[in-house]
Amino acid sequence: VKTETGKMVLEAAIDAGVYVPYLCYHPGMKSYGACRMCVVSVEGQRGFPAACTLPVAEGMKVQTESKDVNELRRSVMEMLIAEHPNGCLTCHRIDICGPTNVCLRHVSVNDRCVTCPKNERCELKDTVRYLGMNLESPLQYKYRQIPLEVADPFYDRDYNLCIVCARCVRACEELRGDDAIGMTERSGQALVGTSFGTSLLESGCEFCGACIDVCPVGALVERDNKWDKPRKVERT
Rank of each mutant, 00 (worst) to 15 (best):
57 A>E: 14
140 Q>T: 12
92 H>C: 00
195 S>R: 15
236 T>N: 05
56 V>A: 05
138 P>F: 05
108 S>P: 02
75 S>H: 07
168 C>D: 05
87 G>C: 03
96 I>W: 09
177 G>F: 11
132 G>A: 09
56 V>L: 10
57 A>P: 02
144 R>L: 15
199 S>H: 04
224 D>F: 05
62 V>Q: 09
159 Y>H: 12
44 G>P: 03
144 R>H: 13
164 V>H: 14
10 L>D: 00
78 E>N: 13
61 K>V: 15
208 C>F: 01
228 D>R: 13
164 V>M: 05
67 K>G: 03
63 Q>S: 12
123 E>Y: 04
201 L>N: 01
14 I>H: 03
89 L>Q: 09
40 V>Q: 03
34 A>D: 09
5 T>L: 11
161 L>N: 08
204 G>T: 08
122 C>A: 13
38 C>R: 10
176 R>P: 00
168 C>F: 10
116 C>G: 00
100 T>C: 00
87 G>F: 02
23 L>Q: 06
27 P>R: 15
157 R>G: 10
71 E>V: 02
146 I>S: 13
21 P>S: 12
36 R>Q: 06
30 K>L: 14
55 P>A: 06
11 E>L: 00
135 L>P: 00
179 D>R: 09
178 D>A: 10
196 F>I: 07
233 V>H: 06
34 A>E: 06
186 R>N: 04
145 Q>P: 02
183 M>I: 14
141 Y>A: 01
179 D>L: 09
21 P>K: 07
211 C>Y: 07
124 L>Q: 06
180 A>S: 15
226 K>P: 10
190 A>M: 15
233 V>F: 07
12 A>M: 03
145 Q>D: 13
108 S>T: 13
178 D>L: 02
22 Y>P: 06
87 G>E: 02
43 E>D: 07
104 L>E: 02
135 L>A: 07
10 L>H: 00
60 M>P: 09
216 P>Q: 08
226 K>H: 14
184 T>V: 14
168 C>W: 07
186 R>V: 10
72 L>Q: 10
211 C>Q: 14
87 G>H: 07
221 V>L: 04
88 C>G: 03
63 Q>M: 12
47 G>E: 12
185 E>S: 12
118 K>G: 05
